[in-house]
Amino acid sequence: MSDSRPIAPFGRRSVSIVETRSLGLYQVIKVQDDAAPLVRPGQFHMLSTTVGWGGETGGRPWLGRAISFLSTDGAGGIEFLVDGVGPGTHRLSSLKSGDQLDLVGPLGNGFPEVGSSDQTKPCLVAGGIGLAPILALSQRLELDGVEHDLILGFRNAEFAGAARDWPNASVSTDDGSVGEQGTVIAPLTRALDSGSRTVYACGPPLMLEAVRALCDETNTPAWFAMEAPMACGFGACFGCAVETKDGIVRLCVDGPVLSGSVLAGISSTGRVDAQ
């Protein structure tokens, strides 16, 4: 577990949205956050909107929502990628430039540092909204000049529109409407065969479990950015419990990135899979 993680300013702060755009079916919101210029791929923030949070129809959203970041300019400009699946993410997706966002973060450990001298070629794998931390890591590796594979899986062409800015990625879709038909497992198997050695993955639990099983079989070191329902994001509530070989951990402080070596299996920690 890395404790050289970038440290978050204490408390919740308000930032301004400077830009929004859509990426496939997802929404990108960009903020300027001068208080925390450094974030590590795989870290996340707890987000809520300053206006229109709580007290909506049904009384939700009320607690903050955990959202990874998609990119950073290293000077406080941070982009989030939001998949509207419920009241919180729908509200976040509706934000416009100039609106205020409340956030706490950066939180969690993030992916371990990948050195350019590492002999093990990184292979990055994302499914669905798992795209955000994986593209953040890809951006970091590109800046550091680390060659890597990038494998992106989507449900269909509409969602796959999110991959448009990454022409070098190998894309697969469940329905074959774009790229290769099927899951990320076939391209991942090929990448491992051709010398990719450490896997970094984020996506829905079913996909992560398939990737984990493959890496386990092939003795491939792997890191998984995982999800669990979260109320606080900084270790206060014990709500984000995830089972590992070492017992139950709090995903928000001990993760969200966990090594494959501590995972016996990956399953959804909510009852209904948001994907």
Binding site: G59, A231, G239, A241
Partner: peptide
């Protein structure tokens, strides 16, 4: 502790 899920968001309460 208990098995997940451990949290449910209800109107202005948890």
């Amino acid at each position: 502790g208990n098995r997940p899920p451990r949290l449910w968001e209800a109107p202005t309460s948890l």
